[in-house]
Design a binder for these strands. Structure first.
Length: 422
RNA sequence: GCGGCUAUGGUGUAACGGUUAACACUACAGAUUGUGGUUCUGUCAAUUCGGGUUCGAUUCCCGGUAGCCGCCCCA
């Protein structure tokens, strides 16, 4: 390589570098999500970000595949797509082992997704997401459980009910109302699209657009509200029971919101989104729903499924605005300083014994002065510092310095672990 | 994909079209110190890229690129 122009240090357009402190923040969020889901018996799976392009072409809209995926041809003339979402991969994996898996499946996966889009705040070309799915149960039970998991994940970060709202809608309900009015499935889809964009239109434009779908002076939403149609009302009652059941579990921030649409692609029943109650952050934190037809696309009979995905970047924005983001620690917990280079060897012995007890320790390896070693520990974001030289070796007692406060405590070697690990 | 705004050391800012592009922080080196975030000295380091106008461009114009904002879309 010639050195005419230095290579740019910028990452590729629309993607991010995560330096250790950044990544510590992201992965601590992963950890909380993981811990919460495991508590409820969910199992983690993983797959390659490379998928055959056909996986997306069969089920997703033309525009999304052609304009918003990274698709290329490999050296063996196979068309390859970088996964833009996890659900098709999940459906493929489930379909591949459909006879041997134990249902219901409670699965989750955390990883990166790729979409070729115009980058903006909260939207980049590579992003991290956690996908949570329950597969193999029909009806409100599983739907409720999915919503509960979304709720519990946010609660695990310390969020309170007042910090977020869970807005739920039912595609079956809208479909039933459309059917009762004699609208075609296509018209119902268009109607949903109009409702979805309600906030982006003026009141008059919305009324004009909505009027197209009125039959005998009533459109689907009005029919649902009127509660005059028996079959529509039955679906409505069932859905409200689900919402009531969630409220009884303490989730007083769930609500019925018929404007939640979720892209109209493969959802068949419940759709839901979670929003920050802070108006400065209007984006959905999380969204999902029921998608019963998807697995069957890969062969065999229909498998009921319900799930959601939570974007890590938007979650971090949410946690930041509510001051819930834990302090990220990227490296060691304790820095052992050495007054002279001769002390390094015995300091290493001490460090090794601490490591055996699970403490992450860094030992000075330079000839720097103790003052500079403290500076180094501070810069590295290490919370504790202790010098270990001849005095400490003979007395067995160390002065443990908490770098944030500057406080120093005399502690014995044996006490170190319990203080630092905490 | 469409439109608007922006682009100066690693970061944040400054510079009527006119000397060697300034300041602060950071980094690095040194002084001092068996205990840091204080001080002192020094060093590295920038006009996004390509054209154009001009005697002369960081400054004005056009284009590329990137970032931010809105639209489309958001699986």
């Amino acid at each position: 390589m010639t050195d005419k122009q230095p290579l740019s240090t910028e990452p590729y357009k629309g993607v991010h570098d995560y330096y250790p402190l950044d990544w510590a923040r992201v992965s601590s969020v992963f950890e909380t999500i993981r811990r919460t889901l495991r508590l409820y018996g969910f199992e983690e799976y993983q797959a390659s970000p490379l998928e055959r392009a056909e996986l997306y072409e069969s089920k997703t809209s033309e525009e999304i595949v052609s304009q918003q995926t990274y698709t290329f041809t490999d050296r063996g003339d196979r068309r390859v797509t970088l996964r833009p979402e996890m659900t098709p991969t999940l459906a493929r994996m489930v379909a591949g082992r459909r006879r041997e898996l134990v249902y219901p499946l409670r699965w989750f996966s955390i990883g990166n997704r790729f979409r070729y889009e115009r980058p903006q705040k909260g939207r980049s070309r590579e992003f991290y997401q956690a996908d949570v799915d329950i597969i193999g149960i029909e009806g409100a039970k599983a739907e409720g459980e999915a919503v509960v998991m979304a709720y519990e994940i946010l609660r695990a970060f310390g969020a309170e009910n007042k910090d977020f709202r869970i807005r739920m809608n039912s595609r079956s309900l809208i479909n039933a109302a459309g059917e009762a009015l004699g609208l075609s499935p296509l018209e119902v889809t268009e109607y949903l699209s109009v409702i979805d964009r309600k906030d982006k239109m003026s009141a008059e434009d919305f009324e004009t657009a909505r009027a197209v779908y009125r039959k005998n002076g009533t459109d689907p939403l009005e029919l649902i509200e009127a509660r005059t149609n028996e079959s529509v009302d039955a679906v409505y009652q069932e859905f409200m029971e689900l919402i009531e059941a969630l409220k009884e579990r303490g989730m007083d921030n769930v609500e019925f919101d018929p404007t939640i649409a979720r892209g109209f692609l493969y959802y068949t029943g419940l759709v839901f989104e979670v929003f920050d109650t802070n108006p400065e952050n209007p984006r959905a934190l999380l969204g999902g729903g029921r998608y019963d037809g998807l697995v069957a696309l890969y062969g065999g009979e229909q498998v009921p499924a319900v799930g959601f995905a939570i974007g890590v970047e938007t979650l971090i924005d949410f946690l930041t605005t509510h001051n819930l983001l834990p302090q990220a620690v990227s490296g060691a917990r304790l820095f052992i300083g050495t007054p002279t280079e001769n002390d390094i060897a015995s300091a290493q012995v001490l460090a090794d014994s601490l490591r055996k007890q699970g403490v992450s320790v860094l030992v000075n390896v330079s000839g720097k002065s103790l003052g500079d070693q403290i500076k180094e520990a501070v810069k590295r974001g290490i919370p504790y510092f202790a010098a270990y030289g001849e005095n400490e070796a003979t007395s067995g007692s160390l002065k443990l310095k908490t770098l944030e406060s500057g406080q120093e405590d005399a502690v014995s070697k044996d006490e170190l672990v319990s203080i630092i690990v905490r």
